[in-house]
Amino acid sequence: MTLTTRQTRLISRTCLTLALLVVAVPFVFPFLWMVSSGFKSATEIFGQPSLIPRVWRWQNYIEVFEYQPFARQYFNSLYIAVTVTVLTLVISSLAGYALARMRFAGAGLLMLFLLSALMVPEEVTIIPNFFLIRWMGLMDTHAPLILLPVFGSHGVMATFLMRQYFLAIPKELEEAGKMDGLSRFGIWWRVALPMSRPALAAVSIITFLFSWNLFLEPLVFISSLERFTLPLALSNFTDSYGLPLWHLQLAATSLAVVPILIVYLIAQRQIIESFALSGVKG
C-alpha cells in the first residue's frame, strides 16, 4: 500500500516534531532543574533525584538574602544595566546619526577606527583599562561597569546598528525638519529618534542583557560585597571551604534568571529579532 502525499507529510511532520523535542531536552532541563533544586534542602539536593522537591524549602529564599547583601546586589545590577542602556542609547544614536547623515572631515577614518573596535575582545584591553581605572580612582566603584560597556565594542556595535537604521529614513523628512526650523540636534531628537523606535528597542534589549550578564569587568574591578553585581554574587555562594552551597546558589540563580525568562517569554519575538539585527552587523 502506498501512502498519499498527505500521509507522508503527516508522518514527516511528526518525526520532525519528535526529533526537535528530544533536542530541546538539554535546553529546557537546566532551567527546570535549577528552579526545582532551589527549593530543596542541602541534603535532598544530593539524594534521590526528583524534579518535584519532596519538601518545598522556601527557607532557601530567605537565606539567600541573609548570606550576602543579595537585595543590594540585585539592585546594583538593575541600576547599572538601566544606566548603561540609557547612556548607550543616547551616545550611540548621536554618533550613529552623525555617521549616517552628516558630512564632516574625518568621517571615513572614524568609521574605520570604530569598525576595528568591533572585532577586538575586551580581554585584550582589560589590563591597561585596569590601570586606567585605578589611576582615575574608580576601583571598587560601579563607574567602570558603566564606562567600559558604553564605550567598548558593545557601544560601537550599537552605534553601527543605529547608523544603519538612520540611513533608511527618507532624507526629505529631515529636510522638512530643517525647513521647519529644527537644529541638527532637533532633527535628531524630534524626527530621527521618533522614527527609529524599532532600532532603539533592539539596542535597549541587547544592551540591557549585555550589562546584566557582564562578568569579567565586575570580577576585575569590584571587591566589596555590597557593590557586587548579580553574576558576581551568584558565583559567591560558597561555604567556608570554598565549596558551593548549591541549594542557596541555585535559589539565587533562579531569582536572577526567572524574571528575565518571563520577560523573554512575553516578548520573545521582539527580543529574538533584536539579536538577529545586532548579529548581522557583527
Binding site: 527618507p170 526629505e172 523628512l173 529636510e175 522638512a176 525638519g177 525647513m179 524626527v191 521618533p194 522614527m195
Partner: peptide, 14 residues
C-alpha cells in the same frame, strides 16, 4: 523665510 513642499510630501509619520 522660505517654505518648501517636497516631492514625497515628507510628512512626519509619527
Amino acid at each position: 523665510g522660505v517654505a518648501m513642499v517636497f516631492q514625497s510630501y515628507a510628512l512626519y509619520p509619527h
